[in-house]
């Protein structure tokens, strides 16, 4: 049983890797690559957020705040102070982790709407600071961010690289890099979920009293998962900043937080691969419905509502359930 379960765990990761390998065959131009790279970075962010929301059952409506802090820390450290990218990403993540821990301890005592409001406020405060600290952040106009530099090797969407004797464009290199990042993010998340720590997190969602009477320090685990999801957001925010080459406080905005939450809910709370699908769908939708630009947030709100009402388990789990029901029916019919 255990073996079968572990195999199925890795099977998902392998399928994701195959999709990421095959995908370039369908990507025609740099714009497509850019879109998919953004998807991968956002997907990795919501894989982290899902640990908090889907598995531990704690809402955060301010996660873009942590994403934005990571983005700006990387931008300022590398751009203004000339740090190399990797230390900037790591120090940014550590700072965000500390902030999340300090903020998380008190607010995670709250439940339901109160927690929603508190996390919302955290996001707002961060966005306001990024808007106001013009000297560091450039204010509402935003700031440029240098290309990502990994151990002396600069990764720019406009560069050209040679890999295994092949010449690849910068946007392709970024795609490969973001794919690897997503796979690692998913692998860590899967490992976390299928562990004593993961069970403790899920039990906080399933029954907080049951968790506490078998010895789970529920307050500690809530803080822990809040911090972990904030670290995911911070690191991905930093990568996003480098990839985009330019950031504005919009990356920390309420709209962005809602986008993240909608990705999680639409894709499937508590389904790591589901939320990736959520990220893909919600990143594609504005491309398809280009005319609704200014109504984007309204649209996300609507999707959020409709999903909660009609498909509370989310897209991927619902689809999987339908497919497996069909297959069982078929098998039953043949028997």
């Amino acid at each position: 049983m255990m073996n079968r379960f572990m195999q199925s765990r890795l099977r998902g990761l392998i399928v994701l890797a195959l999709i990421l390998i095959i995908l370039p065959a369908f990507l025609a131009n740099s714009f497509h690559y850019e879109l998919v790279t953004q998807m991968a970075i956002l997907a990795a962010t919501v894989v982290g957020l899902n640990l908090l929301v889907g598995y531990a059952g704690q809402i955060s409506l301010g996660h873009a705040g942590f994403f934005g802090l990571g983005a700006y820390f990387s931008g300022i450290a590398t751009g203004t102070y000339g740090w190399p990218s990797v230390p900037a990403l790591l120090v940014g993540a550590i700072l965000v982790a500390i902030i999340a821990w300090v903020v998380g301890r008190p607010i995670l005592r709250l439940k339901g709407h109160y927690l929603s409001m508190a996390t919302l406020a955290v996001g707002f405060i961060i966005a306001i600071i990024l808007n106001n600290e013009r000297d560091f952040t450039g204010g509402p106009d935003g700031m440029p961010v240098p290309a990502l530099e990994v151990f002396g090797w600069e990764l720019s969407a406009f560069g050209q690289y040679s890999l295994f004797g092949l010449t690849i464009e910068g946007f392709q290199a970024w795609y490969i890099f973001a794919s690897v990042v997503l796979l690692v993010a998913v692998w860590f998340a899967l490992n976390l979920i299928e562990s004593p720590i993961g069970r403790a997190l899920r039990s906080v969602h399933g029954s907080e009293v049951a968790a506490s009477v078998v010895g789970v320090n529920t307050a500690k685990y809530k803080s822990l998962v809040f911090v972990i999801s904030a670290i995911y957001a911070s690191l991905m925010g930093g990568l996003y900043a480098h990839f985009q080459g330019f950031i504005t406080p919009a990356v920390a905005s309420f709209e962005f937080s809602i986008l993240f939450i909608t990705m999680v809910v639409l894709g499937g709370m508590g389904s790591t691969f589901g939320v990736i699908l959520g990220a893909v769908v919600l990143k594609l939708l504005p491309q398809v419905l280009a005319d609704f630009q200014e109504l984007e947030t309204v649209m996300f709100g609507l999707i959020l509502m409709l999903t909660m009402i009609f498909m509370p388990k989310g897209l991927l789990p619902t689809l999987t359930a339908i497919v497996s029901r069909r297959m069982r029916k078929k098998a039953g019919g043949e028997a």
Binding site: R199, A210, V216
Partner: peptide
Amino acid sequence: ICMNMTAIENVMLGRHLQLKSNLFTT
């Protein structure tokens, strides 16, 4: 009961205090 887990995971949750794990090994 944690309905978001399998039956046996609910029981394994009971082993929480016996299982020493850290983030790194996890």
